[in-house]
Design a protein around this nucleic acid. Sequence first.
DNA 1: CACGATGGTGCACACGTGTGCAAAGAGGTG
DNA 2: CACCTCTTTGCACACGTGTGCACCATCGTG
Lengths: 353, 353
Amino acid sequence: MGIPDRPKRTSARRPVSIQDIAEAAGVSHSTVSRALHNSDLIRPEVRLRVQQLAQKMGYIPNAVAQSLKGQRTHTVGLVISSIADPFAGRVVRGIEEIAQANRISLLLSVSYNDPERELEIIETFQRRRVDGVISATAQMRGAYVQRLTQIKMPTVMINQQADSEADRLLSVDADDYAGARLAVEHLLSLGHRRIGYLGVGNRWQSNRRRFAGYCDTLSAAGVAVNAQWVRVAPILNNPRSDDVVDGQALLPALLGSDVTAVFCYNDLIAVGALMACRELGIVVPEQMSVVGYDDVDIARYVTPPLTTVHQPKLRLGELAMQMLLDLLEGQAVHNTSLANELVVRSSTGPPPL
Amino acid sequence: MGIPDRPKRTSARRPVSIQDIAEAAGVSHSTVSRALHNSDLIRPEVRLRVQQLAQKMGYIPNAVAQSLKGQRTHTVGLVISSIADPFAGRVVRGIEEIAQANRISLLLSVSYNDPERELEIIETFQRRRVDGVISATAQMRGAYVQRLTQIKMPTVMINQQADSEADRLLSVDADDYAGARLAVEHLLSLGHRRIGYLGVGNRWQSNRRRFAGYCDTLSAAGVAVNAQWVRVAPILNNPRSDDVVDGQALLPALLGSDVTAVFCYNDLIAVGALMACRELGIVVPEQMSVVGYDDVDIARYVTPPLTTVHQPKLRLGELAMQMLLDLLEGQAVHNTSLANELVVRSSTGPPPL
DNA sequence: CACGATGGTGCACACGTGTGCAAAGAGGTG
DNA sequence: CACCTCTTTGCACACGTGTGCACCATCGTG
């Protein structure tokens, strides 16, 4: 009665397949497949019986096989430069929320801004046949972009507003240039004229945009930017650099000039600056105003609480994921740019007399 | 010459398969498969020719098909309760590093301590046939554990040292009880006798262990624990609660009693306590000592820098991933418990006279 | 009763890869 | 030359699922 050519499926405790259900129900595996998909090709009684049997046998569909057959894996690759970065954390949260709501799984990879690793990661994504990629890396090297465009894999970048070469890639970002202008205008309105900038070398695109906003705002106010006011953390071969340490090391170099306020590339740099001030006995904001960027959690908890430019991190992630989903649906999508918002706390005040 | 039964593979810009290479090289797909695996069954000239051809055609193996055939997906599911939590961030980093080194992909899922979501997540992992699971959720509900053991999926838990029901699951953790003792002993040695505890309700296992360490250490020193000294943040139905806010709200309730120091469940609670002290004009550590737990980055940056119990977060992640790999190799593995370390900074000092 | 329409089911193939086994070819030896 | 051995390759199946098409049964109608 039983067809003996199937070599004992129960051997290695393999999960039950539709074939197993088919044998148990006395139908073909096609019928089971259709029944489980509620196809109205199958007679209602059979459909119900198969479904109950599947339930009872603890059937769980094999997504690997489904991915192979249908050409969708329902998987999205996610590249970030650092998981420890609180900025990335919020963005990922937004991404994950939308992904989970749409039954998409996320493949997480951390690049540490290592070019070699970046290439490895996208090759892994290709091998795994992800439906698309979201890249929230701080820095975008030529080879990386080139590879990504070349293989025509649906991709959305976060905070990488298109310059020159990146034109063809989709992105969602918060406007760095405008954000920087908000920060510097705030300091100008408090009466500061000599305003410094502490930047980072290893995220040159966003650093350049924020720096440009800084320069243009000062120029527009009739202040000539002094090279002595600007310090940028060098690019180390060590990819695990710490922004706070950099900010702390950078600030003292500014003291030779006579700045009364400093605009920092991000909140961590700003926290470093605050710590340096404390060490040097400089009172913030009475003797020195400090502005950060990002508005990560920590900005609220340091002393004094940091005035900073709030980026809609959660929203960035949500939008990026939604955009990718739309893209996969074949809908027309367009780059999006979100506005930032100044959050005034206690690290800024009028300049000393 | 060409066999016409294959319907134009070039139609939908599908990635090249070994079949395509086989046709181009005039051999069978089996030969290509073996050649690409450097099998010495294949003649060296053919092997080289196929490899070069594969390279030239931009062949990238289909991991989905490989997963279906071989019974390994080289994928590990990762469940965490919150991505924004800085503690989780470091742990994930450790996990990811080891995973990437062993060419394992990570499927990231966030549970937000939502029981329903937890069950959905592990079902997704089952569907995707992950090789194993690492769970770093703060809280482990019965149904979750039960399901995880029941389906016999290789699993490693982080910071969930086995109580009763969880005996069968592997875990790597840092000793909460001993860590709490370190913290309280430090306060005792400074001369404090009336020491408070600020806990959390929604992570009851670890909270219970730390609280037990707190109680026992006080008792051993001959101090009777006063119920007035202990406050625990209530469990909200809102799963996105904020520890800092909780700590801030909890501290004032302690002031009625006459504690001179407070041990907090984690650094975020402690930061909230610091902020409450500042608002109330209580000087730390002169009038009140505060100790945290975890040693997340932020602990170094608040004012005053936080004395805390350092957990080897990176190491926890690395060990968990390595343990899972060993488990998959069939090696014998055993639960591991790491030691914590007290980090004395400036938020603790002798009690006021 | 014969024939067509309709609804339900199974066959067979496809997705892309890996592998046991047979077969074919080459080369050596008696 | 016949036979055996060894190397190299292809056939065929497997992994688990989905689906076009053919087949069969049943029913209705002329």
